[in-house]
């Protein structure tokens, strides 16, 4: 990978972190309504995962979707504007935190019902198989989603039809407040893929380069016609499930232990230790990202509310 490739990964991870910190502040000021699920701690997962995709490859995820949106090429401006419910948001202020998408960038959302988007991902992949277009669908979901029926229906169908889909379980160890081993019959989630004869692997989700390599390998196998693949990415969220989570289900020690392996801090050290970039270059980049996010917040705050008539648009495409 060229130097710029490394810096792009770092840029995306830091931008997601800063964006999420700004979102938390805006939420505490009462400017963001509803639920807010932050991606802090998990930045290396989607950043590494999405890095090897081509523009033909589709991405679909669950409700912890701001970071994924950024990795798919949405700007911090349209992401934060959506959080503030503004007309300039990626979903015109109608979706909010959990429903961000940009289909022109092949980013298909942002789905808030746990596991329900997995059958949709099978359909997106079916679209490419049927139309003989080259895309692979990357479908991300949490560990909790592997316990709902949709997961099993979708995995089964993907194998029966040999669909070009990469199933990605983002295992952050808790489905809301329930630890994986309290909710799942197998604690190695990827073993569930064995039940559908889907080749699978796992990777450390705190190591962006490891995730990138694992993703690139599987995308290549799928692109070659190998059918679905399953990747379990082990990670940890540093914040609660959503804002307002009392976090009674885990100890502060555990959180601190994982925070010592901050994916951003570790990658920063890696870049300097391996002479990819100097401390000075990195600080310059970090300053630029601070400015990018500050500008995005300003843009979002100054953006207009959706027009009142937007209430009734987009219910149907056709006029009846």
């Amino acid at each position: 990978m060229e130097k710029q490739g490394y810096l792009d990964l770092y840029h995306q991870m830091v931008a997601i972190r800063r964006m999420e910190e700004s979102a938390a502040e805006l939420y505490q000021k009462g400017k963001i309504g509803g639920f807010l699920h932050l991606y802090i701690g998990q930045e290396a997962v989607s950043t590494g995962l999405i890095a090897p995709r081509t523009p033909d490859d589709r991405v679909i995820t669950a409700y912890r979707d701001h970071g994924v949106a950024y990795n798919c090429g949405l700007s911090a401006r349209e992401i934060i504007a959506e959080l503030l419910g503004k007309a300039t948001g990626c979903s015109k202020g109608k979706g909010g935190s959990m429903h961000m998408a940009d289909v022109k960038k092949n980013y298909w959302g942002g789905h808030a019902i746990v596991g329900a988007h997995l059958p949709l991902a099978a359909g997106l992949a079916l679209g490419d198989l049927y139309s003989k277009t080259p895309g692979v669908t990357i479908c991300m979901f949490g560990d909790g989603a592997t316990n709902i029926g949709y997961f099993h229906e979708a995995l089964n169908l993907s194998k029966v039809w040999n669909l070009p889909v990469l199933w990605v379980c983002e295992n952050n160890q808790y489905g809301m407040g329930t630890a994986v081993d309290r909710a799942s019959a197998v604690s190695d989630i990827r073993e569930k893929a064995d039940g559908y004869a889907i080749p699978n692997d796992e990777v450390d989700g705190m190591d962006v380069l490891a995730v990138q390599a694992a993703s690139a390998k599987m995308l290549e196998e799928i692109r070659a016609g190998g059918g679905p693949r399953f990747l379990e990415i082990n990670t940890y969220r540093f914040r609660g499930h959503s804002m307002g989570d009392p976090e009674r289900y885990r100890k502060a020690d555990e959180v601190h232990r994982y925070q010592e392996n901050d994916p951003i801090g570790m990658f920063r050290k890696y870049l300097i230790a391996n002479d990819v970039a100097s401390e000075e270059e990195i600080v310059k980049l970090e300053d630029a990202i601070e400015e990018e996010v500050r500008d995005a917040v300003e843009f979002a705050e100054n953006s207009p509310e959706p027009a009142p008539e937007e209430l009734f648009t987009n219910v149907y495409v056709e006029t009846y």
């Binding site: 289909v103 298909w108 329900a116 988007h117 997995l118 059958p119 949709l120 991902a121 099978a122 359909g123 997106l124 992949a125 079916l126 679209g127 490419d128 049927y130 139309s131 029926g149 949709y150 229906e153 979708a154 089964n156 169908l157 029966v160 039809w161």
Partner: peptide
């Protein structure tokens, strides 16, 4: 290819139908 038998998986039938429709089919 055009008359696709599915498993007994109603959620997957409708979900996959939605996904395929999103791609323009």
């Amino acid at each position: 290819e055009r008359v696709r038998d599915t498993p007994i998986s109603e959620a997957a039938i409708i979900g996959a139908g939605i996904g395929a429709a999103l791609t323009g089919l």
